[in-house]
Simulated assay, not measured.
Amino acid sequence: MDNKLTESSILEQENKLYRAIKDGNITLLDELLHDDLLFILPSGETITKEMDMDTYRGGALKVDELLSEIENLNIIDDLAVITLTMKLKGKFNEGPFEANFRYIRFWKKFGDGIKVVGGSGRAI
C-alpha cells in the first residue's frame, strides 16, 4: 500500500472539511483537525483546535453557503500545503455575514489519517 499523500486524498479531505463546516459536524471536525492545530483568523488572532471547536459547539458560527476554489496544492513528503479562495455566507453570533476569504491550510499524514495542523485565513 502506498503511504504517500496524493492530490486526490487531500482534495477528499478538503471536501470532508467543507461538509463538516457547513453541517456544524463536531465529530467530523474533531477527526479532521489535529489536536495541536494552530490557525490564524482574519482578525489576526491565533486559535487552537479547542477554540475552533467551541465556535461550532456553542452554535456561534452557522454556514449556509460555502463555495471554494483551489488555487495551489503542493505535496511535500507527508505534508500538503493548499491555498484556496472561499465565499462564505451565514451567521456569526446571530449576525448575518457574507464574505470572500483566501486560506492556506497545512494537511499532514499521521497513522490515524490526514489532519489539518495549521493554517490562516484573510478577507479578500
Rank of each mutant, 00 (worst) to 15 (best):
Thr55Ser: 05
Glu98Thr: 00
Gly95Arg: 06
Gly119Cys: 05
Ile47Pro: 05
Lys16Gly: 07
Asn72Asp: 11
Phe110Asn: 14
Trp107His: 09
Thr48Phe: 02
Leu88Met: 15
Phe101Gly: 02
Phe106His: 14
Thr83Cys: 08
Glu50Thr: 12
Gly95Val: 09
Ile70Met: 15
Glu94Asp: 11
Phe39Gly: 01
Ile104His: 00
Ile70Gly: 01
Arg19Met: 10
Asp23Ala: 14
Trp107Asn: 11
Ile104Arg: 07
Leu32Phe: 03
Tyr56Ala: 09
Lys115Tyr: 09
Lys115Ile: 04
Asn74Glu: 07
Leu5Asp: 15
Lys115Thr: 05
Ile47Tyr: 03
Ser43Ala: 13
Thr6Glu: 08
Glu7Thr: 12
Thr83Gln: 09
Met51Trp: 03
Leu66Gly: 02
Leu17Lys: 00
Ile82Lys: 07
Glu14Pro: 01
Asn3Cys: 04
Phe92Ala: 06
Ile75Asp: 10
Leu88Ile: 07
Ile76Glu: 04
Tyr103Cys: 02
Asp77Thr: 05
Gly44Gln: 05
Lys22Tyr: 01
Lys4Glu: 15
Gly95Asp: 12
Leu11Tyr: 01
Glu7Asn: 10
Met53Trp: 09
Leu38Lys: 14
Asp35Lys: 08
Gly44Val: 13
Leu29Ser: 00
Arg105Asn: 14
Asn93Ser: 09
Thr6Arg: 07
Gly111Lys: 02
Asp52Tyr: 00
Ile70His: 06
Val117Gly: 07
Met53Ile: 15
Glu12Ser: 11
Leu66His: 06
Phe97Ser: 02
Ile26Phe: 07
Leu37Met: 12
Glu7Asp: 10
Ser8Ile: 04
Leu61Asn: 06
Leu5Lys: 03
Thr46Cys: 08
Met1Ala: 15
Thr85Phe: 00
Gly118Cys: 06
Phe97Ala: 06
Asp78Arg: 08
Ser120Gln: 13
Asp54Ile: 02
Met51Ala: 13
Tyr18Ile: 15
Glu45Gly: 04
Leu17Val: 05
Ala123Gly: 08
Asp35Gln: 13
Ile47Val: 15
Lys108Asn: 11
Ser120Asn: 11
Thr83Leu: 02
Met86Ser: 04
Leu41Trp: 01
Glu31Ser: 13
Lys16Phe: 04
Leu28Asp: 10
Glu71Trp: 03
Asn74Thr: 15
Asn74Tyr: 11
Arg122Gly: 06
Phe110Glu: 15
Gly113Cys: 14
Leu84Pro: 02
Thr48Trp: 02
Ile114Phe: 10
Arg105Ala: 12
Gly118Gln: 05
Thr55Leu: 03
Lys4Leu: 13
